[in-house]
Simulated assay, not measured.
Amino acid sequence: MNFTSSDRAARFTESVIREMTRICLQHGGINLAQGFPDFAAPMEIKEAAVEKIRGDVNQYAITWGAPALRQAIAHKFQTFNGVAIDPEQEVTVCCGSTESMIASLMAVVNPGDEVVVFEPFYENYGPDTILCGATPRYVTLHEPDWHLEEEELRQAFNEKTKAIIINTPNNPTGKVFSREELSLIAELCRQWAAIAVTDEIYEHIVYDGAEHVSM
């Protein structure tokens, strides 16, 4: 008996990142496709993990995250990002940013909606949008400084726009969105009742005096 994949799954191909890693291993190259640290994890983290294992901390946590972890996340946002959030109502812990992104989009996006995506983009954003039944509206970041054109961004928004994905600092370009650019995005989100979904996983990796600003 022959089985075929769903129409949804048939639209996707192998991860470009994993493909590059596979080819790199095949030819013995230096892998710049994935983030493989060349140093050990800090001893404090290892010891904390061992302590929890020995203390039998191994049961299911509350669905949206252990209270102590949510409180720590809220404290970090307040002190580093300058954003006050309620750990009981505004923090949900996921298994990494990949799950967080698709879960966030599926929570707010309906089939037929549109999602604005800046390109170049991290490879999951387009598929995440499609899996939600939405249509990605791509807006180009222009070389050499990867700036956005205000008019192009304005034209991407319309009555179908439900969300915009902002990755800052950006993968793969390294672009750090300026306060002015984020203010423009915020203005358009308010105008069209759209939700800004941000991926700020590289917030601590900024160079040349750039300032990371949270949406």
Rank of each mutant, 00 (worst) to 15 (best):
F3E: 12
A10N: 09
V16Q: 05
I17E: 00
R18Y: 01
T21G: 02
I23S: 14
L25S: 12
L25A: 07
L25N: 08
I30N: 07
I30K: 05
L32F: 10
L32W: 15
Q34A: 10
Q34M: 06
F36I: 07
D38A: 10
D38Y: 13
E44R: 10
K46V: 13
A48E: 15
A48K: 08
A49E: 13
V50N: 06
E51G: 15
E51W: 12
K52S: 12
R54P: 08
G55T: 15
N58F: 09
Q59M: 13
A61W: 10
T63H: 15
G65E: 04
G65Y: 06
A66V: 14
P67G: 07
Q71P: 08
A72R: 08
A74N: 02
K76N: 06
F77R: 05
F77W: 05
N81P: 14
A84W: 04
D86L: 08
E88M: 09
E90D: 11
E90L: 10
V91G: 00
T92S: 06
T98K: 09
E99S: 12
M101G: 05
A103M: 10
S104I: 09
L105Y: 06
M106R: 11
V108F: 00
V109K: 03
N110H: 06
N110E: 02
P111W: 05
G112Q: 05
G112N: 05
V115E: 00
P120Q: 06
E123N: 01
T129K: 14
T135K: 11
T135Q: 09
P136H: 11
T140P: 04
L141P: 00
H142D: 06
P144Y: 01
D145R: 12
W146Y: 12
E152F: 09
L153P: 03
R154H: 00
Q155V: 13
A156W: 09
E159C: 03
K160Q: 12
I164Q: 00
I164P: 00
I166K: 00
T168A: 00
P172T: 06
V176F: 00
R179Y: 02
E180H: 08
L182G: 10
S183H: 03
L184F: 03
I185M: 03
E187L: 06
L188P: 01
L188A: 02
C189S: 03
C189P: 01
W192L: 01
A194R: 04
A194D: 02
I195G: 11
A196T: 07
V197D: 03
E200R: 09
E200A: 13
Y202V: 13
H204K: 13
H204C: 14
I205L: 14
V206H: 08
Y207G: 08
Y207N: 08
Y207W: 10
G209L: 03
A210V: 10
H212G: 02
S214K: 14
S214P: 10
